[in-house]
């Protein structure tokens, strides 16, 4: 039952190897995409409320604009982590 119909040509093995390598590259690309994408969605959710609060605060007190801006971009660091992971995946 374990007998395989016919023998596999050496060229076919090479081809299969190439396909496997290409598949891996594809998975790496998906992984890198997920790393940036999910980190972006996460920080977007975090920034949503901070940004709304910052706009609310400086609608009343204009001098809070600088502070509000800094607070709003703090979750942005998470995207940078995602980006770093994506670069590591793609180039190392």
């Amino acid at each position: 039952m374990l007998e395989v119909a016919g023998t596999i040509e050496p060229s076919s093995i090479e081809l299969l190897k190439d396909v496997a390598v290409e598949n891996n590259r594809g998975l790496v690309a998906i992984g890198a995409g997920l790393a940036v994408g999910l980190a972006g969605i996460g920080s977007g959710i975090a920034e949503k409320d901070i940004g709304a609060a910052a706009v609310g605060a400086f609608a009343e007190r204009e001098e809070l604009f600088g502070k509000g801006l800094i607070m709003t971009v703090i979750p942005e660091t998470i995207v940078i982590f995602g980006l770093v992971v994506a670069i590591l995946l793609l180039f190392l």
């Binding site: 949503k48 409320d49 901070i50 709304a52 609060a53 910052a54 706009v55 609310g56 605060a57 400086f58 609608a59 009343e60 007190r61 809070l64």
Partner: peptide
Amino acid sequence: KKYAYITARVRGMKSK
């Protein structure tokens, strides 16, 4: 429930 904007703004008003 959009409270982030209104509560921050109200706190700004409260400080005045």
